[in-house]
Simulated assay, not measured.
Amino acid sequence: MLQKSSMKLLIVGATGTLGIQVARRALDEGHQVRCLVRNPKKPASSKLKEWGAELVQGNLCDARTLPAALEGVEGVIDVATARATDSLSIKEVDWEGKVNLIQATKAAGVNRYIFFSIHNAEKFPNVPLMEIKHCTELFLAESGLNYTILRPCGFMQGLISQYAVPILDQQGVWITGESTPIAYMDTQDVALFAIRALEVPQTEKKTFPIMGTRSWKAEDIIQLCERLSGKDAKISRVPLGLLRFLRSLTRFFQWTYNISDRLAFAEVLATGQPLDAPMDDVYQTFGLDPNQTTTLESYLQDYFSRILKKLKELDYDKKKDQKKSKKTPFKTNFDGSLK
């Protein structure tokens, strides 16, 4: 079933939350890894180089930079996506850039292509990122490349800034009026599926959902964080109408287009329909053990135990410093002169 052999891979989007885990997993599995990066001097790029990856400077949106990056490559793992604060739009990166990459991959004679989409992308044509992901899936399927499409729906890492940190800091936690259950997965586990796809012929020219062990509503995650942190959350609900207004407002300015397109994702969350899918057949196809997949409970337990331990250590050090500062650094004689 497995075709275990070292490959020379080009990973695009390797400096992102998921991409860096994909690169690390590929290196750990013994693959030769080349990463297409816009800025080789960024901390994430330096980390990749430190791990043993080869860095090639380039840009999806500049097709002229791609042939050199693809030279000698046997497989491409595409994890790139536009960020909300990016100077390039979602359309430029996630559509025009991906078309450039797929065409350049085919022209270079590289056959294997792993693409990350989003679960249920075809069901939300009015949400820019979802529509573009679905269109890219169709374009890839018609390209003639030997592809595998992986469709996660949410990463556990994003829950830290969304829920864990605000609760610890006693700041407000913002959630939408309608809470959609989402089957979040640890990016390390998602990365495992990406690398395993290269080794399993049964994954070729197919699309797979990549889901966590169960789906979670926002309220359930908040309750779990409260229990693990020992703190109460300050919850604020944002009406969907307000998010729609903010989306229309941010469309007025070119530099906020990405923010507007991300706000459109609220439409996905407003359906109340679980972002989940059966995974038994997927695990069987990939030859992976579902019992080895990280649960959200264990992920957050590990996070809070580490952060609370660190906070205790910092408080101990602070108290120790306070005690030292109370001691007189020099002893004096009765006349006030130093001993």
Results as ranks from 00 to 15, higher is better:
K323C: 10
Q57F: 08
I182V: 15
E96Y: 15
R247P: 01
D220M: 14
Q292K: 14
V165T: 12
E92Q: 15
Y303M: 01
P40W: 02
S89K: 07
L36A: 04
H134Y: 09
I235N: 13
E50M: 11
M1V: 01
L150K: 07
C153V: 07
D281G: 01
L228C: 02
K319H: 07
A141D: 06
R151W: 03
I235Y: 12
E204A: 15
L70D: 10
S45T: 07
H31I: 07
S117F: 13
D62F: 09
L27K: 08
M279C: 03
Y316K: 13
S179Y: 08
V73D: 07
Q103F: 05
S179Q: 15
L48A: 06
V110R: 05
A183L: 07
P152Q: 11
T15I: 03
L70W: 05
A84N: 09
A218V: 03
Q103P: 00
D86R: 13
K49V: 03
L101C: 06
C135A: 11
A104F: 13
A80L: 00
L228N: 07
E71Y: 12
C153D: 02
I20W: 05
I167S: 10
I11V: 08
A191N: 09
Y163I: 12
E71M: 12
F115P: 00
G30N: 08
T332S: 12
I149M: 14
K312N: 12
R38E: 04
L243G: 05
T207I: 14
A191K: 12
G58Y: 00
E50V: 02
L338I: 04
D220R: 14
K49M: 09
Q162Y: 08
L150D: 05
K231N: 09
L308R: 01
S215I: 01
T148R: 09
L48Q: 04
Y147H: 11
P166I: 12
A68H: 14
W255L: 09
F265K: 11
R196D: 02
G177R: 07
A218I: 02
V190P: 03
K133M: 03
K106S: 01
G52P: 03
R247K: 13
M130T: 00
N120F: 02
T187W: 04
K312P: 00
R214Q: 14
K309H: 08
V127M: 08
N39C: 01
A164Q: 10
F116S: 06
S46D: 01
G19A: 11
G177C: 04
R251K: 15
Q254E: 14
N39F: 03
H31E: 04
G272F: 06
T250H: 14
G172F: 06
L150R: 10
A121R: 00
A23G: 04
V110T: 08
V127I: 13
P152A: 05
Y257G: 02
F330R: 15
A164I: 10
Y147I: 10
L243W: 05
K106N: 09
K206S: 14
R24F: 03
M156W: 08
N126D: 12
E226A: 06
L311Y: 13
A63Y: 11
L55G: 01
D280G: 00
L275N: 01
P43N: 07
E92I: 05
G109L: 08
A270D: 09
E219V: 05
I175P: 05
K310M: 11
L36S: 08
G19D: 11
L159V: 09
